[in-house]
Amino acid sequence: MLELRDFQVRYGNFKAIKNLSFSLPSGDAVGLTGRNGVGKTSTLKGIIGLVETEGEVLFRGEDISDLEPHTRATRGIGYLPQERKVFGQLTLEENLRLVGEDSGEDRIKNEVIDLFPCLKGLFNQKAVNLSGGEQTMVAIARLLIRNPDLLLLDEPTEGLMPELEEVLHRVLEENLRQDRSILIADRNINYLKAISNEVYQLSEGLVSNVIEG
C-alpha cells in the first residue's frame, strides 16, 4: 500500500529525516515513535505532501512524491494532523460536509452519531466553540468519511478521553480488517504496540530501533 524509498525531509539546510525506507502492506499498521521534534510529524507531512521531500513515496505502487497534497488526499490518503485540527469558523456539520460526497449527507450524519453519540446536538455549532475532545471526534470523523485506504494519524491520543481511545481503537481495527493501512505517530510506545505490527523508533532522522507489536 505504502512504500518509502530513501525518503528525506529537509527544512532549508536542516535534514529532519535523513533516510527512511520501509513498506507498509495492506491491512497492516506501523507506528512511528520518538521524542518530541524527532521527525514523526515531518514524516507524515511528507507523505501527504505538505513539506518538500526527496526520495520516493509509493502509494499503491505509484510514486506520488510530485503530486499536490489535495491530489494525494483524493486518491485515498487520509491525514489526521496533530492538535486535532478542525476549521474553527465552520460549523461541525460544515467541517464534515467539506469532505463528504454531495449526496448522502444524512447517511453520513447518522454514521457519525453512531460513532460519537455525544456529538448529537452540536452539528450547528461553530467548531471553535466545541471542547477539545469534541473537536478531536470531529477530526476523526472527517478522516473516516471518505474511507481512505491509507490513514496517517499524528498523535491521535493526545488529550483524548479513555472511552474515545477505545472507540478509536475499534475503528482502526475495523479498518485494518478491511485491508486498509495505518501509519501512526505517537510518543506512547505501548499504545502503538497495541495496534501496530511494527513500531519504528526514530532518532536523528533515522530509524534506530524496530519493535514488534
Binding site: 505532501g49 489535495h70 488526499a73
Partner: peptide, 8 residues
C-alpha cells in the same frame, strides 16, 4: 489543512 483533506 484544506489541501491535506483534498481541497485544491
Amino acid at each position: 489543512l484544506s489541501s491535506a483533506i483534498g481541497i485544491p
